[in-house]
Every structure is written in structure tokens, then in C-alpha cells.
Design a protein around this nucleic acid. Sequence first.
DNA 1: CTTATTTTCGGTAACGATTGCGTAGTTTTA
DNA 2: TAAAACTACGCAATCGTTACCGAAAATAAG
Lengths: 339, 339
Amino acid sequence: MYRAATIKQIAEALCVSISTVSRALSDSHEVSAETKRIVLEYAKKINYHSNPIAVSLKRGRSNSIGVLLSDVASSFFSQVINGIESIAYEKGYHVIITQSHDSFEREVTNMSHLASRSVDGILVSMSSQTTNYEHITSLHERGMPIVFFDRILDEIETFKVTTDNFKAAYEATEVLLKKGFKGIGHLTNAPQLSITIERLNGYMAALKANQIPFDERLVFYCHEGGRNPQEIETAIDHYLTKEIKADALLISSDRISTSALRVLKRLGKADQLTIIGFSNSDVIDLLSPGISFIRQRAFEMGEIAAEMLIKLIESKYPIYEFETKLLDGELHWKGKEKI
Amino acid sequence: MYRAATIKQIAEALCVSISTVSRALSDSHEVSAETKRIVLEYAKKINYHSNPIAVSLKRGRSNSIGVLLSDVASSFFSQVINGIESIAYEKGYHVIITQSHDSFEREVTNMSHLASRSVDGILVSMSSQTTNYEHITSLHERGMPIVFFDRILDEIETFKVTTDNFKAAYEATEVLLKKGFKGIGHLTNAPQLSITIERLNGYMAALKANQIPFDERLVFYCHEGGRNPQEIETAIDHYLTKEIKADALLISSDRISTSALRVLKRLGKADQLTIIGFSNSDVIDLLSPGISFIRQRAFEMGEIAAEMLIKLIESKYPIYEFETKLLDGELHWKGKEKI
DNA sequence: CTTATTTTCGGTAACGATTGCGTAGTTTTA
DNA sequence: TAAAACTACGCAATCGTTACCGAAAATAAG
């Protein structure tokens, strides 16, 4: 088996002490220029690289950050990861990805797994099933740096970054109203998620601003976030019943948007419901019938989250001032006016 | 700052030696049942978790695997990651993701970054720009377990898993021929990639089997893999010229397929070229005009790759028999017949 | 030419866990 | 009852690195 070179080997070969080698390699002023040169030269010759595990043990830091999200195989989250990775790479951190698949149990085990793996900090986007935050608060209280992105948690005071969901949902609803739609349904995610609440509020505010009474039958929650196709079928059936009188839908997630469109197409009723959905799919513009969408600045969100976390990790003094950064969604209207 | 509990603390609290605590925790027979009970109980009480960094240093293994691929924000690769992560999680490994963005330099630096991070093994899908394999062979020769997936490398003898690209391209070409298309173009990736070569061979073999002479003007390589939209524009322009007489395209990647479709739609010539493309997008069925596609078993590929790598890592004896596993692509025909 | 001060380096104790070896104390065997 | 064997535990080295402390040289100050 392959054994890497160590400073001990260098020390023995050059007849100097281990300390001197260590200092020479870290360019300490406590070692002469000549000795440095010799050590560096020999280190390069035998292809020495410091053992990061030993350094981690010594320093109590691993230079890696954990990411906890529901699913990597989603256009939104994979773009976020891309952003996270770009910053982490730049600052010399490793990214360790774990998926909850929106399961509470997996979120809890992943969380403790990451903690026991001594990551220096964790980026979290909540699972939609989570209603108990004990696993996060306890870790946070014991000093683990945590930054929330997308699906954030009000209960914990720290840095957060998410889309301005209120505004995005408000604007989307308003567009639909301006285009003449009367019965705007809101098909959304699990009710406990921050993004669900924010978007619902934006939706309701837009209705109110336009003197449209809120009808709670027009709101449908997908507790499984659209993982279960049956859920979407039920939702669409619901909106297509005569009493509801929905003519447009504001849909709160990528998966639900596309699933809903699929169901409508299969039923041959795609023209009955105009969809505007949150989506970061890179082929959304090619869909037919074209659906309008709100694109989130996912890559940027990943970058900002990673920057916030690294700032938290590397701060010499405890931080008490936290920011919640809101990113604007980009609304793309592709539909027709309601006649 | 948060400090985790250590066996030393347990030892002091219970007035036993560190060795005893360590043995009790690992359920050694050299410690009495009573002592074990006391230690385990106390460990649980103070929420003790062994420090994996210390264990890694001692054991010379980190229980983490590195992944090197071009881009996480792609439906195919994100599904592969999903598969990798599911196996790794199950077997107690961490997954460290790095992206080359198809840049040779990033591939080299990521590779050495992963190696110096002492991952126990690496899963590699080659960058499309890579033509020099020194950074991989040298690491492999020094004993680093490496498994290739998707874009594999013949030069290195190890486990590999990829789609049966020859067969998939052969079948796709044959379907087009059976449907009556005469001028089948092949719009593909960078020429040095294994998948490019295999697919080209499948394409050519299908032509030959149907007595169609091969016309090299019908093959167009996207050296940047479609990252540059201009590349696709040029390609489509090329296929739309009269001399070429292409009426269908076999496209070798997800990004190129959708970009090509976008260009065609913009030109209003989507009906002139029937597309069949490799794609793992989960909304490909909703596109219009509908394009036919070959779906790769991405999740399964990730699972298999991770299993192979962990087998390699945990094998007590050196392995000399390697397998290259080929997964069938799933062909979905959505087009019309050529009149 | 002494006495300070600086430069340069070595010894050694951590970091947290594992493990071979030694050894009391107990039990088994002859 | 004495020798042998076993049980249950402690000591200390080790993994590769860093950092504190001390101490020879080398230089500067008086």
C-alpha cells in the first residue's frame, strides 16, 4: 500500500529536527533561509504533501463543509451545489454532500453524521417533513456554524439566504391577475416549510391588494412535495372540479410544476389551467404548452451561502449580527392573456 | 468553541484507563461486561462520538470517497451522484464532490486535491478536454483505488461502468433508418471522450448494417460540449445547408440536444430535423416538438460505481480481475415517421 | 571584553484514538 | 497446594503534525 512522505522522513534525511522541517515548510521566520531552501527542495523532490488528517487533528479543524439538502438530482439544488462548490474550492474547503430526500430521519442522521465527521460548518436546507428542530438547535448551541439556504428556519439566529419568496409569489400572482385570470389557485409544498409560508403570504397579499377574496379551497398542499405522482393527480382533479373555478395556478416547486403539466397534458386539459411555477429547469423554455416560471438565482444562492458559512467559520470573534439575504426571483411570463 | 467529548474524558470520569474505554467502546472481549455497561452508559450520557479524524490518522483511512466529474448541475450527473451517495451512505462513507467543468487544469488540481485529502478512493468521469492522463495514471500506480464511470479511460486497468453506448447509438440510428430517414447526422461531444468514440462507432455500424455509406460531413463534434451556444448554432447551420441533406440528428448529450432544439425552434425549422438525443432530463417528455431520447440508467450507474470502488478499497488482497460493466440505455421514440 | 539580545534550532507534549505488551488477581489443572 | 492459564485492566508507543519552551550559537550593545 501507498504511504505518503512525512516530515519525519525529511527530518531524518536532512539530519534536522522535525520541528525545523515543520517550520521550514510553513515558512516560519524562525528558520534560516538556507535551511528553508534545503528542506523545500527535498520536500519537492520526494513529492511531500502535508497530511491534512494530521493537521485537522492538531488544529481541530477539517477544512470541509457539510451540505444538507433534500435532493441533488433537482435542477435548483444542483445549481446551488455548483455555487457552493465554486466558493468552497476557491477558499480551500471540501464539500460533503448529504441528502435527506425530505425524510426527517435522514435529516437527523445526516446531521449527526456530518457533525461527528468534524466538518467545520454546515449548510442546511430543511427537509419538508421536519417539524422538530432539536437536532439542529442542539448542534448550533454547541457552537457548530450553520447557515441556512432556501428552506430556512426562523427559530435559529444565524446567516440565511433565500429567494424573496413573498415578492416573487406576489408578482407572479399579480401578473396572473393583470392578465385577466380570476380563479388563481396556489399549488404548493409542505405547509411547514419557510418557502411555502412566504409564498403563500405573497399570494394572499396580491389577492388582497386587488380586492380578491381569499378562498382557501384554492390552496393545495403537497405534503410529499410531488414525490408521489398521485398527490399531483389529486391536486389537479381538485382544481378541475367545477366548484373551484380555477383558471390559473401558481405552483411552488419545480417538480410539482412539471408533474402538474404532465397530468394536464395527459388529461388533454392543458388549456384549462394556466401555470406559473417556480422552476430552475434549463429546458423550461422548451416545454409545450409553454409555462411561465419564476427562476431563482440558485448558483448565486450557493455562492452566498458558502461565503456566509466560511465567514462564520473563520471569524476570530463570535458574531452576533446576522443577515438574512433575499435574492430576487426572475419572472418569465410565457402565457397568453385570458380572454 | 464546541469541543466534542473524548475517551479521555470518559476515562477520567470513570477512573479507568483510556485503553479500557477504547476497548469497551469497540466491544472487545478483554473488558468485563460490567465495565462495558458503565462505559457505554456514560458515553451515551455525554453524547460521545468517536473522532473520525483521529481514527483516520491512526488507521490511515478516511472513510470518504472523492468524485470527479464535469458538472453537478446536469440531470445525468446529478442522478449519478444520487446513486453514489445512496451506496456510500449505506456503507459509511462520505462523498466529496469536485467538478472539472470540463477543464483539464481543474481536473488535475481536483485530483491532487482529493489525493492529498486522503480520500480512500476516487470515482472519475473524464473531462472532455483531457488528453493527457498522467495525473490519473500516476495516482493509480501509487495505489489509489480509482473507478471510472460514464466517460471512462481505456489506458487504466480498473473497474469501469458506463452505458452501452455502442448499442444505444446503434439502436437509435437504426430506429431512424427504419422510420425512413436518409440523412442522419451525428452531433456529438468532444472527440477524445470514450462515450463519443463508442457512440460514433455504434452510429457507423448501424449505417453499415443498412448499407448506407458513411459521410463524415454528417458528424459534427462539439469540442466544448455545448457549453458555448455559438457552437450549437454553427452545428445547426451546418446541418441545414443544402449539400448536407440531413433530415435527422443523433445527438450525444443532454445539453447539446436541448440547445439544438432551442436553436431549431428559434429558426422555425424544428420540423426539418428530427432529433433523437441522449438525455436524462426529467421533463424531456414535455418538450415540444417532442424529441426522442435515450435515457441512461444514471442512478444505477452511480450505485454500481460506488460499489465497485468500495469493493476495491476494502479488499484485503490486491485485485487483478477487473470488470467493465455496460448498462443498457432506454430508447424512447417520440417522433413521427418520415413520409 | 563582558553582558544583552537576537537568530536558529532541538526536545517534547499535545491532538484523539488504537493496540501490543506487561501484570496483578483469579480460576483452572495436575 | 503449586503451577499453569486466563481474565481484566493499565502503560506507553504510534499515526503526522504543530507549538510551546528552552538553549546553544551568533550578533549587538554597553
